[in-house]
Design a protein around this nucleic acid. Structure first.
Length: 153
DNA sequence: GCCAACGTTGGC
DNA sequence: GCCAACGTTGGC
């Protein structure tokens, strides 16, 4: 079982939206490194930290889990779609998505600032300068620490 | 709104 | 294959 952090702008899709929908397809990943994580490593049951980016303040808003295997992202060949990519096709898919399911919204958001100041999280990727991946791996120990912070343990 | 960091594109 | 230009991300 692996653990991940996935970024979303809450103005676009928030943890509350996920709570309402129950599950959602993570469409629109158009970065090869993130694509490779999705396609090659994400498995049903993997734990997900749902991160709110571009918000006040940014931080981890709750927990989700992977609920589907990776499948081709069909928005890539929808002409006119925001995520349309003319270089892909159903025969040779270039981009993939997984679906995530809602697990829990934290009673209060774990702000980026707290992640930076929590001992044991020094190596967490999301606090690194210039780390812009929308999907990134999280060490099991880091996941546990952040989950405990979020749940108030 | 600013701007640093980074990925991608495309001319050569 | 190099690298400048450009677009995007995302914290501040």
């Amino acid at each position: 079982m692996n653990f991940w952090l996935m970024k979303s702008e809450p103005a676009v899709y928030s943890i509350d939206d996920l709570a309402r929908d129950g599950r959602t397809a993570w469409e629109g990943v158009r970065n090869y490194q993130a694509r490779n994580f999705i396609r090659d490593q994400m498995k049903s049951g993997d734990g997900v930290l749902f991160y709110h980016s571009n918000s006040q303040p940014p931080g981890v808003a709750g927990l989700a889990q992977v609920v589907s295997p990776a499948t081709p992202d069909p928005t890539a060949w929808e002409q006119g779609h925001k995520y349309y990519d003319p270089q892909g096709s159903p025969e040779e898919p270039r981009w993939f998505w997984i679906e995530i399911g809602f697990v829990k919204k934290f009673p209060q958001l774990v702000p980026l600032e707290l992640l930076k100041n929590t001992p044991g999280l020094e190596e967490l990727l999301v606090i690194r300068r210039g780390m812009r991946l929308s999907v990134m791996p999280v060490a099991p120990e880091h996941y546990r620490i952040i989950k405990d912070l979020g749940l108030g343990c």
